[in-house]
């Protein structure tokens, strides 16, 4: 599946194709879980929480799928990443105030009520060994390298979008991305 296929999938999902929605969530969840974990930072991260957040993000996006149409980016991943960021911030606040919203912490085992695509995406993401390896390699990278790979590969932003976000030129972003990818590959090579 190529990058452009995502938007095609979005169109099909919007047209009501269950298969397309399934594929879409399968695709997104795999990237979203590492993205959430990496963005959360060590202090907030526990295994269950990042899954909870993934579940919450997928659920919210499932409910508000219509809103995606109106968002400024064409990247579904970027849209999901923003929902995830909000979710992380909300939870960090709760954590800080020592409050726990029991309803939000529903464990995965109670996931029977989840819509089909969300559930299958979740299971796939959790079982995905490969995502885990990429994630670990990413974690070992320098912050700048990690962030640009997250923006480009996980949020699936275009280089002009990344340039705007980071306040740099497009060429500088490309160069940084190339260096980051080199570093990531070398990181993976040392691990295998």
């Amino acid at each position: 599946m190529k990058r452009t296929d995502t938007s095609a999938l979005v169109e099909q999902a919007r047209a009501g194709s269950a298969g397309a929605l399934d594929a879409l969530y399968g695709r997104c969840a795999g990237k979203l879980l590492p993205l959430i974990r990496l963005r959360m930072g060590r202090s907030l991260r526990t295994e269950l929480e990042s899954r909870d957040i993934l579940q919450a993000v997928l659920l919210k996006s499932f409910e508000r799928f219509e809103q995606f149409h109106g968002s400024e980016t064409r990247s579904l991943m970027a849209w999901l990443a923003r929902i995830a960021e909000n979710e992380i911030r909300d939870r960090a606040d709760y954590q800080g105030r020592g409050r726990r919203d029991a309803a939000r912490r529903a464990p995965l085992e109670e996931a029977e009520a989840l819509p089909g695509p969300v559930r299958s995406a979740l299971t796939q993401a959790i079982l995905n060994e490969q995502a885990r390896r990429v994630e670990q390699a990413l974690e070992a990278l320098a912050d700048g390298h990690r962030e640009i790979i997250l923006l480009r590969q996980f949020e699936e932003l275009t280089f002009p979008e990344i340039a705007a976000r980071l306040g740099k030129t497009e060429d500088a972003c490309r160069m940084a991305f190339a260096r980051a990818m080199t570093a990531l590959t070398l990181q993976l090579a040392t691990r295998t």
């Binding site: 490969q130 990429v134 590969q153 990818m181």
Partner: peptide, 25 residues
């Protein structure tokens, strides 16, 4: 060549959304 293979795999994996499971090598 091994590094380039690894890189190719990585980009493919990232592109297809980490979902399909090509072995690294």
């Amino acid at each position: 060549r091994r590094l380039i293979d690894l890189y190719d795999n990585l980009t493919t994996t990232l592109d297809v959304g980490l979902m399909s499971q090509p072995a690294w090598a």
